[in-house]
Amino acid sequence: MMGYVTRRLLIAVPTLVGVAVVSFLLMRLIPGDPARVLAGPDATAADVELIRRQFGFDKPVLNQFLDYMGRLATGDLGRSARTGDSVLAEILARLPYTVMLAVLATLLAVLVGCTLGVIAAVRREGLADLVLSGLSVFGVSMPVYWVGLLLVILFSVNLGWLPAAGAESWQGYILPTVTLSFFTIGFISRQMRSAMVETMEMDFIRTVRAKGVARWAVVLRHAVRNAALPVVTVIGLQFGQLLGGAVITETIFAWPGIGRLLVESIGARDFTTVQGAILIFAVALILVNLLTDIVYAYIDPRIRYD
């Protein structure tokens, strides 16, 4: 297993280089002069020129690129043009908030999504299945920003139960977590339902039933564990969606995480911070996919990586 993990991490290096190249190039394609944005509306032409030289925007793009990649190779993500702080420090300060939100949303989505999916499959074609299928279609059809705003209107504005923004108290975590997991709950529950329906028709389920094992044990011990195999893959892939959702969710709830950092930095044409944040997202995605494959091997004895 260690050999496999090492190999996977080594394969991740070219992927990250690719991400760095693409994010660098994309930023140069965005219209707008970063020096002018940084200098502010009242700045003189001389000020703008000074800033341009200071951050190296006056050099040819190829040179800027080589500088950036050279620093990256030493683990230096550069300095933020907006605040002058180290990009790495800024990201690390905000990372725990985003990680916490993503982990909570994933846990909630897995817990609720799998439960709903199993219930729908067991009560197939019954009322529960119909209601739950409707709910999950609702879940996957609602855009994140719309769900977030509706929840704020209901629970913060009208009922006044939960804060609309900020991460100061544990109550502040509730609405962003629910918002972020909304789509994933719908998605996972649909996947789980179809995987369960398929598994329940397998020969080995009939064998277990023929042994006289109680129905709940047939479902929980055998069907759920086998149905979980394809769903784990989906959860891993879903994490990318979750990161995208985090950008929007953090903006709605003024959440001090990386998603909002990214949005603010794009607005300010803060190239280095944007590139750093994208790189961190890529690292997170690669690690989660690796984790997914490790979990997969753990729950399916047929898969061995070495």
């Binding site: 397998m202 020969d203 080995f204 064998t207 086998n226 399916d300 004895p301 047929r302």
Partner: peptide, 10 residues
């Protein structure tokens, strides 16, 4: 079918 009649994960 002995190939498919046993649960693969136990």
């Amino acid at each position: 079918e002995p190939m498919t009649s046993l649960d693969p994960v136990y």
